[in-house]
Amino acid sequence: MLRIEKLTKRFGANTAVDTANLDIDKPVMIGIIGRSGAGKSTLLRMINRLADATEGRILFEGRDVTQLTGKAKRAWQSDCAMIFQQFNLVPRMDVVSNVLHGTLNRRSTFATMFNLFPMEDIHRAIDILDRLGIAEHAPKRAEALSGGQQQRVAIARALMQDPKIILADEPIASLDPMNAQTVMEALRRIHEEDGRTVIANLHTLDTARRYCDRVVGMRDGRIVFDGLPEQLTSGVAREIYGAGEEFSEAATSTQIETLDASTHALRPTRSEALL
């Protein structure tokens, strides 16, 4: 279904992603973990073609995605929807219009300029919002919603594209634990109910184990682990994060009961800790 072969991205003398290889042969939910700067975001951006690879290939159903240009590239970006940490919504626009922006790639320039949406698309957008538990917020401005609600609007916008793959770049990094769980549960349901592949960048071990079928660990731009959640032991985590014996999983937990646990090992940023 999706094959990544020796994918590399260099920025001058720095290598952000180093000869990454990944095979996905069926719809699956994958969590990519690792420290900040490990190359996780760059990998997703290359898959979506927001960034061009320096070397290597991305094959989807036998087609070389890295060679796509123009209309074919835009079509791929519809098939491979992207969800960002900071939501990327239009704050002063109402929620349902933000969701409808997921159809921009298949609409005319005239319709886009004047926000002319078919009634069928409007009904579909509201149905998707209802599925995510936020249909009552459809007429509100996006800026009036909480962070967790805004991220669900961003997920709804991605679903409007009817993608085959959903890429989520740290989707819960800026959310509190309750909203983080709600968003991850929504992504899991989308995978299970729709049969869509979901690939999410995560910082936390418990999130990866709880929601993902497969976990990929990155360190210094290289994939150093690719296995089942139960294979993600503390020893493996220490290797991924480059930490010593003092490493504590509490430092990367999203479980509410462990948020106040003290640790002197890996000290992530606030966003990483909440992730």
Rank of each mutant, 00 (worst) to 15 (best):
L2D: 03
R3D: 07
I4W: 07
L7W: 02
L7H: 04
L7I: 09
L7D: 02
T8M: 11
A13L: 15
A13S: 15
N14T: 15
N14F: 15
V17L: 10
N21P: 11
D23T: 14
V28S: 11
I32L: 01
I33A: 00
G34F: 03
G34C: 05
G37T: 06
A38K: 02
A38P: 02
G39D: 00
L44A: 08
L44E: 06
L44N: 10
M46Y: 00
M46T: 01
M46H: 02
I47Q: 03
I47M: 09
R49H: 07
L50R: 09
D52K: 14
T54N: 10
E55M: 14
G56M: 11
G56K: 06
F60L: 01
D64A: 04
V65E: 07
L68D: 04
A72P: 07
K73M: 08
K73D: 03
K73P: 01
R74L: 10
W76A: 05
S78C: 09
C80S: 07
C80T: 09
C80K: 08
A81R: 06
I83P: 04
Q85T: 07
F87K: 03
H101W: 04
G102N: 11
T103A: 14
N105E: 04
N105C: 11
F110I: 12
F110L: 14
A111N: 15
N115T: 08
M119G: 01
D121N: 07
H123Y: 03
A125L: 09
L132N: 08
H137Q: 12
A138T: 15
A138K: 15
P139R: 13
K140W: 15
K140S: 15
G147H: 09
Q151V: 12
A158K: 07
P163G: 09
I165A: 08
E170T: 08
P171S: 09
A173W: 06
A173Q: 06
S174R: 05
L175A: 15
D176A: 10
P177C: 14
G195L: 06
T197W: 04
I199E: 06
H203W: 08
T204M: 04
A208I: 13
R210V: 09
C212K: 04
G217H: 04
G217I: 07
D220Q: 13
F225E: 03
F225Y: 07
F225S: 03
L232W: 01
S234P: 01
G235E: 14
G235F: 01
I240Q: 00
G242D: 01
G242A: 02
S248L: 04
A250I: 01
T252E: 00
S253A: 06
A261I: 05
S262W: 09
R267T: 11
T269H: 00
T269W: 00
S271F: 05
